[in-house]
Design a protein around this nucleic acid. Sequence first.
DNA 1: ATGGTTGTAAAACAA
Length: 256
Amino acid sequence: MIVASWNVNSISVRLPHILEWLQEVNPDVVCLQETKSVDEKFPLAQLNEAGYQCSFFGERAYNGVAILSKLPAENIQKGFIGEQEPFSRRFIEAKVGPIYVLNCYIPNGQAVGSEKYEYKLRWLESLKSYLHQHKNSALPTVLCGDFNICPLDVDICKPEEFLGTIMCSDVERQALDEIKNWGFVDTFRKVNEQGGEYTWWDYRMGAFRRNLGFRIDHIWATSALCEKVSRSWIDKSPRKKERPSDHAPLLTEFSI
DNA sequence: ATGGTTGTAAAACAA
């Protein structure tokens, strides 16, 4: 079973890339972020035609998440149960086959110390509470998404330049560690030792060509499920196309 | 150096 996560930066603009990629890679579950589409305009027919069921939670212009799956999605949850403030649409969850799939688009945070950074930290706190109150780490669960955080220094292209700045600051990394400590293992890091592997490159300054990237997209799995990981890799091919998303898809294969 | 690019949506704003 292959699970993928991809920030597509507009599902309507990226639909041709997505359809081509689904046909080529044939993943079983795909978590999408930044769909930037109201639910009425979600391209459901084309994705159904491609063989995928769709659960989606979108809004106008910003944010938006979706889960595509070959098997039907059950127990769909949009947003956090009883969330403390009306967050933008950044979380969707479903059970697909034997796996609980949690898809999140963690706020970017803009700059350390800004209001948006505080919002990011509150959002992380809400995700942690949601896990502790409503989820069971003994069950096979994946947390996928654009986390907008580099867990380790080797996940940053130039740590000497970026450590302490947004996506690479101690406070947000600590908050993410607390979420991980609920019971997740980083599937990519479990089977890949090398640093310098990135999932996001800024559109500006030829960042992709110069490989100035960050590993901010992740697929985490609860520990028993993580034992079943056979491969995890970043597919840079869609990032090389014309008019790409600024993120590349991340994939993890489970032997189940 | 406060630049550069992309998407949304129609002037900024978010990333």
